[in-house]
Structures are given as C-alpha cells and as structure tokens.
Design a protein around this nucleic acid. Sequence first.
DNA 1: AGGCAGACTTAACAAATGGTAAAAAGCGAT
DNA 2: ATCGCTTTTTACCATTTGTTAAGTCTGCCT
Lengths: 190, 190
Amino acid sequence: MPNPLINFLKLFRDIPADDEGLIAGAMEHRTYKEGDYLFKAGKICRELFFVCEGILRIKVINENGNEVTHFFIRENKFCSILNSFNNQVVAQESIQAACNAEVLAISRTGLDTLYSRLSYLKPLITEITHQALLDKIAVRNAYLGQDSTTRYRMFLMRQPEIAYRVPLSDIASYLGITPQSLSRIRKNIR
Amino acid sequence: MPNPLINFLKLFRDIPADDEGLIAGAMEHRTYKEGDYLFKAGKICRELFFVCEGILRIKVINENGNEVTHFFIRENKFCSILNSFNNQVVAQESIQAACNAEVLAISRTGLDTLYSRLSYLKPLITEITHQALLDKIAVRNAYLGQDSTTRYRMFLMRQPEIAYRVPLSDIASYLGITPQSLSRIRKNIR
DNA sequence: AGGCAGACTTAACAAATGGTAAAAAGCGAT
DNA sequence: ATCGCTTTTTACCATTTGTTAAGTCTGCCT
C-alpha cells in the first residue's frame, strides 16, 4: 500500500526503495475526529505530524479567552509546533483536528533516528518546512491592510478546499473577524 | 576592528580566528539614506544583507497602489527576499532603508563560495534565518484579531527601538492601519 | 422520533476605522 | 532664514466591524 508521506517526499527527491519501509515503519498512523486535540498547549511538543487526510488547525486561547486560529494545515503538509519541537520550549499553541483527519506521527527521537540513518532526510525536511514557513508568511502578508470582506474573498480563492470543510468560527478567527461578521459577509457576497 | 556580523555569529557558535578575515572580506560594507532602495521588486534578489546600523523594511506596492510594509529588519538581523534569494524567482517585494542604515552585503555566489570553504556556515545561517522566520510569524499571529489600538500598543511594547526611528506611515502600513488612523490612535494613547 | 447542545444566522445599535480634504508641522535645499 | 515639498495632524462624515441578544438550524444522543 502506498504511503502518502513517501509519495510526497518523492516529489522533491528520489527515495531509495530500500528506505521506504524504514520511513513508513517509523510513522504511526492515527485517526482523529473533528475537535480532537493532537497536541495541547503547555507542554513541549515532541511530535511531528504529516496530514494524510483532513485539515488540522494550530490555535491559541488569547488573553480575552477567545480561540484564535493561527494556521490551517491541509493534506500533504507537515504540522508541528515548530518552535517548541525544534528548541524544546513549552508551546503556547495547540493542534486540533478542524475536521475528521488522518495523520502520520513521529516522535522527536524517532525522527532523529531516521535522520541518523538516512543522511539526506534532515536537509530535505528542513527545506520543506522552511518553504512552508515562507508560504505561511506570504499568506499573512497578502492579507495585510485588506478589509474583512476582501480577506475572506482571498481565503476563498486561495484555499477553497479548506473553506467548506471546517467550522465558520475557525475561519473567522483565522481571518481576524468575529463569527457574526463573517456570517454577515458570507451572506452579502452571494 | 570588530565586524558586527562576526560578533553576531559568535553568539551562536565559535568562529575560528582564521575564518574571521575570510567572512569579513567577503562582505561589502554599504551606507544608505532613509528612503534609499537596497533592492527593487521585479528582479531576482541576489544579495543577502546584514544590518549593522539602522532599520530596513521589506515592502510591496499592493493592487491599490498603496505601499505595505511586510517587515522591519533591525540591527543584527539578516535581510533578503528569501523566497527569491533561495529559489531564484522574481521578487514582488522591495528592500528600503526605513532610516539611515549601514549594512554588510554579500552576493549569492559570494555566499556559496563561503559555504564551500566553511562547512559549518550554511547550517548556521540556515538555522538563524529559520528562527527569524518563526519569530516573524509569531509576531503576526500575536496581532491577529486585535484592534488597531491594541496592535499599535503591542508594537510599542515589542519594538520601541523601531517605533521612534521610522516614518509613521511605514508603521501604519505594517500594522494594517491608515496613517490618519494611526495618528489619531497615537494622540488618544497619551 | 424527540429533545438537547452547539453552531450559525439575523438584527439593532454602538464603536472603531476608513475616506476625503485641509491645515499644520517638519525637513532639506537654496 | 525662507521657500517648497513631504509627512503628520486634525476634522467631519460614511462605512465597516464589533457587541449584545435572540432566533434558527443541524446533528447527535437517548
């Protein structure tokens, strides 16, 4: 059975057939339902996830007690609290399934073991996550200075596959809008 | 004479004395006045800058013809249009001096030469820029869902050294506010 | 099937922000 | 020091967005 992570890595680089089993074997397959937590803030995040199916979100509870969505992570993307995972510091953010999801998970130590066995893997994953950060920043910059309606329109254009699969309130907090306003905006657009 | 870049790198890792001259010699020292461009959008960005003195900003002209500040880069930070610099694609953003500035500059090819001679340098700089990206994202996420006054207050708390050295209009566009509104907010805060 | 809980929508009003325009202030060059 | 340009401030009004509160809808559980 083809492993979605290996298919994904092959887009960037040839993966020797012999290594496929090693990589696939190191990853643990998990299923989550909408609302389930993959990781909760307050601890060090010691796992890296790869999304096979569904959408995750990284979120925080802000000082007013409101949930704020920092990112949506969709199929064929890695997900972790990078600062915590890399630097062993306590994470302020949580990872939650924004809809039913299937992921592959690997622990920090498991990943280090893989890295030591497959010398090409660390630079490859570093490069992929680096580019993902650039992409995330580019999205945020594109929203900068746009009004709520425009941000929602841009979101629809860029990520329609997310817009219709996750709760409205998650999207609202991702765009920095109240759910009521987003509901109104949605009505006015049609 | 101490080189600010070398001092900076030494914070992360020991730099052999023999290598200092090589690094320092590869960097070109330049002076810019407020408003000068270090790089203009529309080309591939082939230089990496290190800010010794002053503040740079990365900006775009958006579809309405307004300038939008994506980032401020202050002393002891690297600056480039990373996506363009790394992937050889045309940059949409420009780099401008937000106040009088002194920088060290190195070309893509010059950097590659350094990398090939000093094997520790590429992982080091990659790690530094990676962390800088995480920091930039964290700042943007912290602003998410806050009103204009709160964003400005947060900006004052986090980067007072920038707030009083660059034009108000640059800060306004960085925070996604019109200059008029920011002027009003500033008045109401005192 | 009925009822419950959570999510979404709607509405009316208040507050914040944007748009436009004009005055004031700051800055550099002559 | 003065002129002229650019930036910032101020004011007024229009628009957008937030707030509060209620109502509707949906899916899930029993």
